[in-house]
Amino acid sequence: MIPDALFFAVVDRGKAGDLLHWAREKGVTGGTIFAGEGTNPSPILNFLGISEVHKEVLMLAVTHEHSQQLFAAMKDEFRMDKRYKGIAFVVPFRQWLPDAKPAAEDNGRAKEPPFVCLITIVDKGKGELLMDVARKAGARGGTIVHAHGAGVPQDIYFPLLIEPQKDMVFIVDSRVHARPIQAAIYQEMELEEQNNGIVIALPVLRVIGLYEPRGARKRGRK
């Protein structure tokens, strides 16, 4: 069966390897791990400069059955139903294969997905500012991933292609809550202007590990 969903898991640094291992035993082939940073909203930790939490993001292409199994494992073995243990979610996709049928391509767009994953790409260093903006708009957390753009030739002494450094911020929330967050990011980060960044929303079919922040959320849940 062809995989039709991308499974993302954000866990503490060092644990993604175990998870990948575990998944491979269940028959999931191929996975990719990259480093990210979580943030902790505590003002005390922030003042001390230690609000950063090292995380790892695991990305797996899974079939529906595997995704079910993985979610069960997330709950039972990785205790993701508990607070601060990480988050996992699935995004529908179609993998480009030479013989893939273009038929089932709209599996996510057709129906309204219950959750969304906002991916914002901004210049390096703005990721935390963005998290502040998102938190004010009701976001519960996010993961910052360091990335870079394609090389740009510049007029300098060395014949280098300078790679502009970027922060990518992943925020998962219910579809309803994501709207104001996305709007806030768009406005506060001034994404309207050229080259300030982009914000993308991906459909998320299922999520585990999403919790209310300590201290009740102001907006009522729908």
Binding site: E105, A183, N195
Partner: peptide, 23 residues
């Protein structure tokens, strides 16, 4: 182990769609 390409439909949520994209 060669590599993979995934296509994920992105939602244009409420915002003017082309404006979401930049560049």
């Amino acid at each position: 182990g060669g590599g993979k390409v995934f296509l994920v439909p992105a939602l244009a949520m409420g915002l003017k769609a082309p404006g979401v994209v930049n560049g």
